[in-house]
């Protein structure tokens, strides 16, 4: 099978995957107990108003009708209207999604930068005290749940030392909105970002570190290193070029998965640090039975991972011609 046919087939599969994913979500959310009026009943919504509202939302329709309607909407790129807020879902989600991406993206970038460097050094100095200590530290970091790391950092740096704010994304009262740079570039924002991003970075640090270390070991053991050395190339150059080349594939694959984990894990960090992100919004939406909002949030998060996986697959094929298009 040629490359082009392979890519075509993968794209087809991608579409089927998306459809199945969407259906799964739809079924899952319709099984949830309660409906979006629950939260208003204790605040005075009468039974008549409730029925009217349910009909207005189309929730009295047979499930398959709702399914077809929602699928049709989604195909036109419309996520519908939030049941609770009554605003277009997309308006609510875009801002929240950006907040989460900025937070988790920063955490991942820090984790991978440090991890790759650290891992490479550990592999380079194998069997040293540094390596052994490094492994222990890495494993300990990996053993800590996000909320635990968050609570410890919060206790030390926010409550005890008072160096960083304990919650939120910026000091309140300022100008809202503004461009990307205005929102995410200010010193105030960075100060708020520090602890939650550090929490994420600590938790996600282990994977790239250990991966980079073992890749390094593989490269150091490989026969061709000896050959290249014999050819008179400086050891460092050989190492750098080959270690880098050999580590791209596994790192890319792992990063795709890590992004997914980070998306899901953001719920915890956002809760601990009161970060106005997607994860919290999603949990709220689930609790409020706001199906369109919750589904869109799940769908977006899932899409990021599915597409990342897809890209990782293609990169794999592209970078490593030995892989058969199976």
């Amino acid at each position: 099978m040629g490359l082009r046919a392979y890519v075509a087939r993968r794209i087809l599969q991608l579409i089927v995957t998306f459809w199945a994913f969407f259906t799964l979500l739809f079924v899952l959310f319709r099984m949830m107990p309660g409906d979006p009026t629950s939260m208003f009943i204790m605040d005075g919504m009468t039974p008549e108003q409730r029925e009217q509202r349910i009909a207005e939302l189309g929730l009295d329709q047979p499930l398959y009708v709702q399914y077809v309607e929602y699928a049709r909407q989604l195909l036109t790129g419309d996520f519908g209207q939030s049941f609770i807020y009554r605003d277009p879902v997309i308006d609510i989600i875009v801002v929240r999604f950006m907040n989460t991406i900025v937070l988790m993206g920063t955490a991942l970038v820090i984790a991978y930068l440090i991890g790759i460097t650290f891992g490479a050094i550990m592999g380079w100095w194998r069997d040293s005290r540094f390596e052994r200590g490094g492994i222990v530290v890495t494993l300990i970091a990996r053993s800590s749940p996000e909320f635990w790391v968050g609570i410890v950092l919060l206790s030390v740096f926010a409550f005890w030392l008072g160096w960083f704010p304990s919650s939120g994304m910026r000091t309140t009262g300022g100008e809202l909105g503004g461009g990307f740079v205005a929102r995410y570039g200010s010193a105030d924002f960075l100060r708020h970002l520090f602890l939650p991003a550090l929490t994420g970075a600590i938790v996600y640090l282990a994977t790239p570190t250990l991966l980079m270390r073992s890749t390094m070991l593989d490269v150091l053991n490989a026969d061709f290193i000896e050959i290249k050395k014999a050819e008179g190339l400086p050891e460092r150059t050989v190492l750098y070029k080959h270690a880098a080349r050999n580590s791209i594939l596994p790192i890319v694959t792992v990063m795709a998965i890590a992004t997914g984990a980070a998306m899901g894990g953001s719920v915890v960090i956002e809760t601990v640090f009161n970060w106005p992100g997607m994860g919290r919004e999603m949990v709220n939406a689930v609790n409020n039975n706001d199906y369109p909002l919750a589904m869109a949030a799940f769908f977006l998060m899932g899409s990021v991972v599915i597409i990342m996986n897809f890209i990782a697959d293609l990169t794999y094929v592209y970078l490593d011609p030995r892989v058969e298009y199976e």
Partner: peptide, 22 residues
């Protein structure tokens, strides 16, 4: 493998929250 892909696409904690709610 496509099923596996889908499962990879499901964010764990939010999914577990929904499942536990159900």
């Amino acid at each position: 493998m496509r099923i596996t892909d889908i499962v990879y696409g499901v964010p764990f904690l939010p999914f577990a929250i929904v499942l536990v709610a159900i």
